[in-house]
């Protein structure tokens, strides 16, 4: 923040719903460019837990950037799947962030990270059972009551399946949407990764999701790795979106319609131009289906 800030963009849409266009995740190496040059991108996503401190350059930068871009706050620590329930102190911290940033959208994961008061900094999978569904829904309802608005919940990338699971993942998620009034953040890369790792048909997954439930799509790169001679896909967000994921994205767009789409990149973050280029590729795929469409806003 060594340069004087550009004059703020006077645009009511900055604080409306997230536009049905391509956005990117705001990453620390790119913050200065957003402050100095205001790159052309429809919206930005931040990880909520990175902005909970009382002060410092990080939160001050977001205060400045939010004036010019719609912001989605994507949580990585609420642990919606915790049997212990949500951490009330963490809810309060998040609420304070949302009151200040006024995000255009709030999302979290269908996973858990906290057990017995310990935070594992990983998005761990749930068994797909009636019990876990009840826990998830209770926690989503608590979060939505605290935030005073519906949230979006993201399908996880999975590396394992629990023996006790009885419900297909897409049904589990759809039922959570039906019971709580939340929406889905459909991570198309996660569908591809999980389908490979635990063995299901991505087409069946897409067919099992109601188009009206989907409020956002995530895209990211993954890593193909061999463990004990067995190929496994790791959701590392460290490369460009893979060709089969683009194909699945096209099928997802055809099914659910035009929704805000986000490019995520978390490891080996490249220069901003690469993320903007990936976003342009997503935008181009929206244009194929809706050549003249204005941005369709979703709640």
């Amino acid at each position: 923040m060594t340069h004087p800030p550009l004059p703020p963009r006077i645009d009511a849409a900055v604080r409306g719903p997230v536009p049905a266009q391509a956005g990117i995740g705001l990453r620390f190496p790119h913050v200065a460019e957003f402050l100095d040059r205001r790159p052309d991108i429809a919206w930005l996503e931040v990880h909520s837990e990175n902005y909970l401190s009382p002060g410092g350059p990080r939160v001050r930068s977001l205060d400045a950037i939010r004036v010019n871009y719609p912001i989605s706050c994507h949580g990585v620590g609420l642990s919606l799947g915790s049997a212990d329930g949500l951490d009330e102190a963490h809810l309060v911290r998040l609420k304070a962030l949302f009151d200040r940033i006024e995000p255009n959208l709030i999302s979290e994961h269908v996973s858990w990270s906290v057990a017995g008061g310990v935070y594992l900094n990983d998005l761990l999978p749930l068994p797909y059972t009636e019990e876990a569904l009840a826990v998830l829904c209770r926690n989503i309802e608590r979060a939505q009551a605290c935030f005073g608005r519906p949230i979006l919940i993201e399908n996880p990338s999975t590396y394992l399946r629990f023996a006790q699971s009885t419900i297909p993942e897409w049904e589990f998620l759809s039922e959570a949407v039906r019971r709580t009034g939340c929406k889905l953040l459909l991570d198309v890369n996660n569908i591809h990764v999980s389908a490979h790792n635990v063995g299901f048909d991505p087409a069946r997954y897409l067919a099992g999701v109601a188009p009206a439930d989907v409020g956002e799509i995530h895209l990211a790169g993954h890593l193909r790795k061999e463990i004990d001679g067995q190929p496994i896909l790791i959701d590392d967000h460290g490369s460009r979106v893979a060709p089969p994921v683009w194909q699945l994205y096209e099928r997802a767009l055809a099914r659910v319609g035009r929704v805000p789409t986000l490019i995520e990149w978390d490891t080996d973050v490249p220069e901003l131009a690469v993320l903007l280029d990936e976003a342009a590729l997503a935008q181009a795929r929206m244009k194929i289906n809706w050549p003249d469409a204005e941005a369709i806003h979703v709640a």
């Binding site: 590396y159 394992l160 463990i227």
Partner: peptide, 25 residues
């Protein structure tokens, strides 16, 4: 608790999560 699916063993599948936590922290 992990299903014995084709491909990776349950132990190797669990190890992915252990590594995620430890390495990220």
């Amino acid at each position: 608790a992990i299903a014995a699916d084709a491909g990776l063993s349950p132990t190797a599948r669990f190890d992915i999560h252990r590594t995620n936590t430890i390495v990220s922290l």
